[in-house]
Computed example of a mutant assay.
Amino acid sequence: MIYMKKFARVYVKAENFLTNFLMMAIAGFVFFASVMRWAGSPLSWSIEFSQLLFVWVIFLGANRALREDSHISVDFFVKKLPDKARAVLEIIISILVMAFLIFLIIFGIQLSIENSVRLISNLPLSYSFVTLAVPIGSLLMFITLSLKLKEKIMRLKTDPAK
C-alpha cells in the first residue's frame, strides 16, 4: 500500500509535468512556425505536430481535471439533495462515465489499429500516435474514476448517517 501511494504521487507529478510541458511545447511550435512563416520559410510540419501534442494534452488534461475535480458541472439541483442521495447519485454517475470510458477504450484501440498505416501529412509518423491518445487517456480516466468511486463507496459505508 505504501508503494502504491508513492507510485501515485510520482505518477501525478509526472502527469502534471507532462501536461505543462506539452502546453509549452505547443505554444513554442506554433510561435516558431509563425516566425518561420513571417521569415518566408514556412514549416508545415510544425502545425501538424502541435495538433498531435494538443490531442494528447486534451486527454491527459482531462484525467488531471478529473483527479482534481475541476471538470465543469451543473450542481444546482444536486446540492439540494440530502447527503446520502447526493452520494448515491455521484456513484451512479461515476459508473455511467466508467461505462462510457470502456466504450472509448475499446473503440479507441480499434481506431488506432485502423489508422496505423495512415501517415500524418508532412510528418513520417503514423496517425496512430494521435488516435492512441483516446484509449490511453480514457484508461487513465477509468483508473482515476475507479479510485474515486472506491473512496466514495467506502465513505458511504463508513458514514451511514449521510
Score class of each variant (00 low, 15 high):
L104V: 04
F129T: 05
D75G: 07
F49G: 03
R64I: 10
R86F: 01
V97C: 10
G61Q: 10
E68K: 11
V30S: 01
G61W: 06
S116Y: 08
L81A: 06
I106C: 02
E68H: 08
T144Y: 07
R118L: 10
I113D: 04
A99L: 15
K150A: 11
L145F: 12
Q51G: 13
S46P: 02
V134W: 03
W56T: 08
A99Y: 07
F59N: 05
F142K: 09
L53D: 07
M141Q: 15
L147S: 10
G61V: 10
L139W: 05
R86Y: 02
F129V: 11
P42K: 01
I92A: 15
N122D: 14
T131L: 01
I105H: 01
P82T: 10
S126V: 05
I102F: 01
I47Y: 05
F49H: 03
S73P: 00
R86Q: 14
P82S: 14
S34W: 00
L149N: 14
V117L: 05
H71M: 12
L156P: 07
K80I: 01
L89V: 12
L147W: 08
A85T: 15
G137F: 01
I72T: 12
S70L: 13
L119F: 05
V134M: 06
R64Y: 12
F77A: 12
L123E: 08
A133I: 02
S70G: 12
D75Y: 00
I58C: 11
L132C: 05
R86L: 04
P82E: 13
L66K: 01
P82K: 12
I153A: 05
L111Y: 02
P42H: 02
L81R: 08
E90I: 08
S112G: 14
L156V: 07
V78F: 07
A39K: 04
L60R: 04
V88N: 10
E90Q: 14
M98H: 13
S146P: 07
V88I: 15
I72D: 09
K148I: 11
P82M: 05
I120R: 01
D69C: 07
F142S: 10
G137W: 02
S94M: 14
L132Q: 02
K80L: 09
A62P: 07
S44N: 06
A85W: 09
S116I: 10
I109W: 03
A62R: 05
G137V: 02
E90V: 06
M36C: 03
F77M: 15
S121D: 12
N115T: 11
N63H: 15
G61D: 13
L53S: 05
S34T: 11
E48T: 04
A85G: 08
S121L: 09
R37H: 02
V55D: 00
F103W: 03
E90N: 15
M36F: 00
G137E: 09
S73K: 14
R155D: 15
P82G: 14
G40D: 09
S44E: 01
A65R: 06
V55M: 05
L96Y: 06
I92D: 13
L66D: 12
L139R: 03
I102Q: 00
L53H: 04
K148S: 14
I58P: 06
